[in-house]
Design a protein around this nucleic acid. Structure first.
Lengths: 168, 168
DNA sequence: CGACATATTGAAGGGCTTCAAGCTACGTGG
DNA sequence: CCACGTAGCTTGAAGCCCTTCAATATGTCG
């Protein structure tokens, strides 16, 4: 997560089990925030890991997998940020969260983050996130149980909206 | 590069010497386009590379470096896409291009891409890219020699604009 | 030169941001 | 237990920036 002005941009969203690192972010004033309770962050010195990886092909392979997973996340986020309308961004975000959090093929997610965090992740304002969610709800595309539990009612609409505008 | 509707989003911008790969992009209809003349793309089968990496720590290390470099590029792009105004996006883009293309500390770049490609990279319209460049020129921040050569006149303005709005 | 891609500029419209106010939820202390 | 306070969330209204459509340059290659 990176603060530039008062604004911040979330550059990677780590969910339980995700790993990260290796970035050039040192240049910036990047920080890590734990959203959920009981978050544990373990850090390993870069140089030592490199040494170990040299002598342990298995570890090296795992590191590659971690790095590739991070690449996937970033590319997915890039695609979301590249979308045109806020409705599409929020829609894609919901799909991503369902895919990453509800291991099964469930259609509902308990979002582990606030609207503010979502806003920073999608690079839109909080108000826009809120309005988009209400909009999706009123269209009958999703349902909200409480403020943080989202259930997908009409998945096609979300997925189609991803490529065609989710507009009327 | 990925096409979603008629629209496309550039998810990685490879300049001479850059490597890429390892993505989950297979899910999408991603394609590679060569902008510059004489571009050579070499592909290596994933499985075989993994095998080689297991037995060759040096190769494994190089692969990691390539992956980390890709991560850096993506994170940089994310930061650009997360910016608010088009002027900031274009400004950051110029800085990135200068950094990546003019090895020395030169302040001018010959952009290897069209306005359309820039637009897709920044996720804005071509017209906006054009207008932003003219705007920066009229503010005396950059100079344009021909349509594709940019020289930075006032680097501070560009860098400050990155975090504070580049507005008057 | 003529044709086609690339680039700039103009004008209208819409979506997002911003500022502002009200609302909901939840924990703390009285 | 309820009042109160604060953080999170929603909703409203105004303004601006970007998109879109359209027309005009500029440039490039046959």
């Amino acid at each position: 997560m990176i603060r530039l002005d008062g604004r911040r941009q979330i550059v990677d969203l780590l969910l339980p089990g995700d790993l990260f690192g290796f970035s050039v972010l040192d240049e910036y004033d990047s920080t890590i925030e734990a959203i959920a309770e009981g978050t544990v962050v373990a850090a390993y010195p870069r140089r030592r890991v490199e040494m170990l990886a040299d002598s342990d092909p298995q570890l090296a392979r795992e590191i590659r997998q971690v790095a590739f997973a991070a690449l996937s996340r970033l590319q997915a986020q890039l695609l979301i940020l590249g979308r045109i309308t806020a409705l599409e961004k929020v829609g894609s975000f919901i799909l991503e969260m369902v895919a990453r959090l509800s291991a099964g093929n469930s259609n509902s997610v308990a979002l582990p983050m606030s609207r503010y965090d979502i806003a920073d992740y999608l690079a839109v304002s909080v108000e826009t996130v809120s309005r988009s969610l209400t909009d999706l709800k009123q269209r009958g595309v999703i349902k909200l149980a409480g403020t943080r539990t989202v259930r997908i009612v009409n998945r096609n609409a979300l997925e189609d909206g991803e490529r065609s505008g989710l507009a009327a």
